[in-house]
Every structure is written in C-alpha cells, then in structure tokens.
Design a protein around this nucleic acid. Structure first.
Length: 426
DNA sequence: TCTGGGGTCCTAGGACCC
DNA sequence: TCTGGGGTCCTAGGACCC
C-alpha cells in the first residue's frame, strides 16, 4: 500500500498548465563578451568572476574553460591552476542587470505571466495562450521565443517546458546549450524517474548525504517508499516535499511579482582585519558604507524595514549573525546604522579573531505608504526622525547627481563634531 | 593565492499571550 | 496555587540556489 493517508500529499488533478523556463546560457560570459567585443569578446578561454578583494570565485566560465574542470563557485586561484591560459574578467554587474531587464521585457511581450527566478532565469506560464499560438506545439512556441530573445537582446537562451515548474527546470538542463526540450503532458513521472536525486533542485550535499545513508540515490529508489517512511526519516515537510517531487508534483505557481523579502550588502576584505583599534576603526567605516548601500537600495524601492542584521565572518570562515527587530519600520541611513553598530558590538564581543567579511542586511520589509502614520509615542521613542529621513533622501539625490563618492559616509552620517570619519564612534 | 555576493526558505528554541 | 496547551513573534543558524 503506497497511498498516502489523510495527512499525506495528494496528486491533485490540476488544470493542465504550459510552463516554460527560459535560461540564459552562461549569462555572465555572454554579457562580458557583448560589452567588450574587442577584449573579452575575442578571448576563447573566458572566465568571469573574481572580486575587488582578490579573493573571488568563478561566477561563470565558458564551456571551453569548464573542460579543464573549472566550475562556478570555485576560487579563481584554483581555476587558474587548472586552466592557466584563461582570461579572467570581472562580472559586468550593471550590464547584466540591464540585459536581464531587456530579456524580461521581451518575454513579457510574448507570455501573459513572467517570473524572474534569478538574473538569468525566467519562468513563463503560457496556459490559456493556445489560441494566441494557434496550431503551434509548445516546442514550436519555445523556439519562437528563443529566436525573438536573441534578436531583441543578443542573448542566447535555452528553454525547458512541461506542465509544472519542476519539470521545466529539469528539462532545460537537457536543452543546454541553446536548445529546447519539452516534456509532454502525462510523461512527468517517467521523466522524473530518469533522474538522480542529486539532480532535483533543492537537494544539496547535506540532504543527499542523508538520502544516501538510507540507500537512496535515484528518483526511482524513492518511488516504492511509503509516505510514512519519508515523514519519519526526513520530517513531515521535507518528507512531503520529497514524495511530491519524485512524482513530478509541483504546485508552485509562476508568480510575476513574489515581492522582495530582504536587502543586503556584504564585503570580503582583501586581507583579514586584525582586531586591534586600527582594524576596528576600519570595520566601523565599512559598516557605514554598507548602511549607505542598503539604505539607498531600500529607499529606491520605496520600502521600509523593521529588522536589521549584521554578519561577521572570522578569518577561519566561521560566520555569525546578530539581528534586531524594531517596533517601527525605518529607512534612514542613520537609523539603520545606529542599530547595526549595536549589533556589531555584540558580535565583536564574542570573538577576537581577525575579520574576513562584514555584511549588513534589512528584512521584515513593508511598502512605504508615503504619509507616515503618526505615532502615539513621543519623539524620544521613535526609531527615526523625519529629519533622519530627509537627510537620507537628500543624500540619495546628491549621489545620484554627482556620483557615488560625492558624499562619503562621514558626511551626513557622521556626527558633525566628529572630524575623523567616526573612528570608533557609535 | 581556498572558499563572492545576492538572495529564499526552513527549523528549533525561547518569550509571551490567551 | 498548580498546570497545559496553541499561536505568534523573534533570533540564530543552516541549506540551498544562481
């Protein structure tokens, strides 16, 4: 008996959907070449990655470089040992954002529902467009979209398709590079059973180890198991998730606007900061810069945040977070920084090791409704004042007009009487 | 020349309230 | 005076993805 009980997942009869996943082939490499046709464009062994710290990893590598064993996430230093003749260029971040937007706009002209799953992946829900694409199979529609994206943006994409997102995601791996792969309705379960569990998105090294400890390596291995066993071994949520995925069940909709949950910025230093007063002063300056970045991004999106998180990574790579949730939402640099300084102090107290990375994030986001609700608290208890907000908005405008460095963190953020860019000042 | 930076989601435990 | 759940919010940490 392999039927789930009352609490178990059901393979509900859903309307037959037509989902495509548009995945840009080695997106960062393509963009780097388009942006610099004479340089990166002519380098056969191109590797995109690294960082200002000189401690970067590979973001994307040309297929010719991958043949040397290079893959994304690998330290650039290691990649260059494997492939010494590779040309390394930094990620053209702004160009990638611009191209990604152009691709999205192109797709939105062809599909009613488009979700950007990442900078280089887009889910399309074409359900209900049968009449629009009259007489075309999903594969033919996919090819048309592929052609259109290339014409409009210069970017080569691969497409996977099926009745659910999970199937489209697995199918696009078969389509790469530059192809189309559609799994027809009714073939989902059989298609899934051609895969290993490690192929499923969401199954990483940790879960894989647990699965293998139970003798489970392929999707096929999972099918004969009763739901109750998965529940017992992996817990109800993960058990249900595995049970469904193995059968190609994926109820998640293509959501054109999932809404942002957090905004963050972090930096790895070229050299670990020692924990003397010098290093700590530098840490404070870095925190100010991060507060500016995060604050500016928050305000540009018209959002407010209630939770502030500071992240510290020691030289030995151990990473600790501290977060604090305020009673009222904030958006000013000063309020963000004030909270972050306290959190950083907490984290600093807990370790004397040199610091490798500092990060700052905000979450518990809400739309800024414009007119702020008048608080019943007196101004002493407000998390930020109207003046704080005005100062931040002014700073945004000045930086927009005169450039990023027009207002260094010591300016509006620093205390006026502080001549020294806030050395060790709270 | 070990290990970036931007995210999302889940879990577990404690506080607190009803 | 003693005692029990359920729900929600918060914090810390970890897994995972591109």
């Amino acid at each position: 008996m392999n039927q789930p009980g009352d609490d178990a997942p059901r393979s509900t009869e859903t309307a037959r959907r037509r989902i495509l996943l548009v995945d840009c082939d080695m997106f960062f490499v393509q963009v780097a070449r388009l942006e610099d046709p004479e340089g990166a464009g002519r380098a056969p062994l191109l590797l995109v990655g690294g960082s200002a710290s000189g401690r970067g990893v590979v973001t994307s590598a040309d297929y010719s470089v991958r043949e040397f064993g290079v893959h994304s996430g690998m330290p650039v230093s290691q990649a260059l040992r494997l492939c010494p003749r590779a040309t390394v260029v930094p990620v053209p971040r702004q160009a990638c954002v611009t191209r990604s937007r152009a691709i999205r706009e192109c797709l939105e002209a062809m599909a009613p529902v488009v979700q950007a799953a990442s900078i280089d992946e887009f889910y399309l829900d074409l359900t209900g467009t049968e009449r629009l694409y009259a007489g075309q199979s999903l594969a033919q529609t996919a090819e048309r979209i592929q052609e259109r994206v290339r014409e409009a943006t210069g970017i080569t994409v691969s497409l996977g398709g099926g009745t659910v997102r999970l199937v489209a995601k697995l199918a696009v791996e078969r389509a790469k590079p530059g192809g189309v792969h559609i799994v027809p309705p009714g073939r989902e379960a059989a298609f899934l059973q051609e895969h290993e569990l490690a192929d499923l998105p969401g199954v990483g090294p940790a879960l894989l180890e647990q699965l293998e400890a139970r003798g489970l390596r392929t999707v096929k291995d999972l099918i004969p198991l009763q739901y109750e066993w998965l529940d017992r071994w992996f817990g109800p949520n993960r058990g249900r998730w595995l049970w469904e995925r193995a059968r190609g069940i994926d109820p998640s909709p293509v959501d054109p606007d999932p809404g942002r949950k957090s905004i963050s910025a972090e930096r790895t230093f070229p050299r670990d900061l020692p924990r003397d007063s010098d290093g700590d002063g530098e840490l404070d300056r870095r925190l100010r810069r991060l507060a500016l970045e995060v604050g500016e991004s928050l305000r540009a999106k018209g959002l407010l945040a209630r939770t502030v998180t500071v992240k510290l990574r020691d030289a030995d790579f151990t990473t600790r977070n501290a977060s604090s949730t305020l009673s009222q939402p904030i958006s000013s640099d000063r309020a963000i920084l004030r909270t972050a300084v306290k959190l950083l102090d907490d984290l600093r107290d807990r370790s004397g090791a040199p610091v490798r990375l500092l990060g700052l994030g905000v979450s518990s986001l809400a739309e800024n409704e414009g007119a702020r609700q008048l608080s019943l608290l007196d101004s002493e208890e407000l998390e930020e004042s109207d003046r704080d907000r005005t100062l931040s908005r002014t700073g945004d405008r000045i930086r927009k007009r005169f450039g990023r460095d027009a207002l260094l963190p010591g300016g509006l953020l620093g205390r006026p009487e502080d001549p020294n860019d806030g050395e060790d000042n709270p």
